[in-house]
Amino acid sequence: MDKRYAAQIRLPEIGISGQQRLSESHVLCVGAGGLAASVLPALVAAGVGKITLIDKDVISASNLNRQTLFLPTELGLPKVTQLATRLAAQNPSIAINPIIDNLTLENAYALSNNHDLILDCCDDYQTKLLINDTCVNFKKPWIYASALGWDGQVAMFSNSSLDTPCLRCYSSRIPINSLSCNNSGVLGASVNIVGSFQATLALQTLLQHYENKDKMYIFDLWSLQVQEFIIPYNNNCKHEQLINANYKNYQYTPLTTNELDNFHIIDIRTLTEWENGHLPAAQHVNIGSLISNPEQYLVPSKPTLIYCNQQQLSKLAVDNLRPLGFNVWWLSGGYNAYKEKQG
């Protein structure tokens, strides 16, 4: 065994067998920003055998306060390739596979199925939900992490069976206008703490130590406090449905205008857009109101078709409402596609 691992092999929880396990592990890291810059060097140093990195973003100057492996001379270059170069130099025995892309429905299943553990190092909630649903489907463990402002959250979801908790069990309410590092601020040191915690949970998971699973660790790094909360399985979460619940399944593409009569139709665009034209029989509802009080706007006797200008917001609404049991669909291509068909 490589001498570089001697210090950790002396830990009774690792030993030679644990080190062998780490060297045979394959990890998928979604996102190559601040969390990845903290998590991945720890995994590479520990001897995790293969790491796949996926992110479509390029390095910008505003990243440099927390994405500490990037250099000012690398602005505009893809994050994953630069990160892969650093990590390969750090430990040449590790296989690093960079993919310049976003995690999508099309690639998530294939990628996740080929890895032992998925690390959520991304900064948008929709991708976190995609990781969640994919991992529920494949019964894959994953480590959720987020850091923003002085706050952080980390959780290991084991997905060892269908009745173990998932991210949707933690909260079925999905943020509509998520704050981001660019508009809310973040400190590199805070991201490093959250990332190091995520790395520790990742290594424990690869070593098959599951004692810290299914708990949300909440970091308040201004007051330097960490608290843990057990996440119970939520019977209303309907994991069986999640397995088939991807956005495509609830997409509706009407072949004729008459088919729309089968639906209660809700327009979630702005009031000005609504006033400039809308689908016949549609009702205008603010998306926040719809998600906060769905019972007020949805008709139990009919499926509801939700549309926005294209489809991003309507998919988001459907993604919020489906886990609550509502029969909601989103209009393929949104109002823009509908208008185009009408000529």
């Binding site: 996102g31 850091a147 923003l148 909260s171 943020p175 704050l179 973040v186 909360f229």
Partner: peptide, 26 residues
């Protein structure tokens, strides 16, 4: 103080409740 409570959970006694907002940075 110990565990996450879903929307259906009913409160039986006076207590402290923690509000955990979503955090979406990476």
């Amino acid at each position: 103080t110990r565990q996450v409570l879903n929307d259906e959970y009913r409160l039986e006694e006076p207590q402290v409740l923690n509000l955990l907002p979503p955090v979406c940075g990476g």
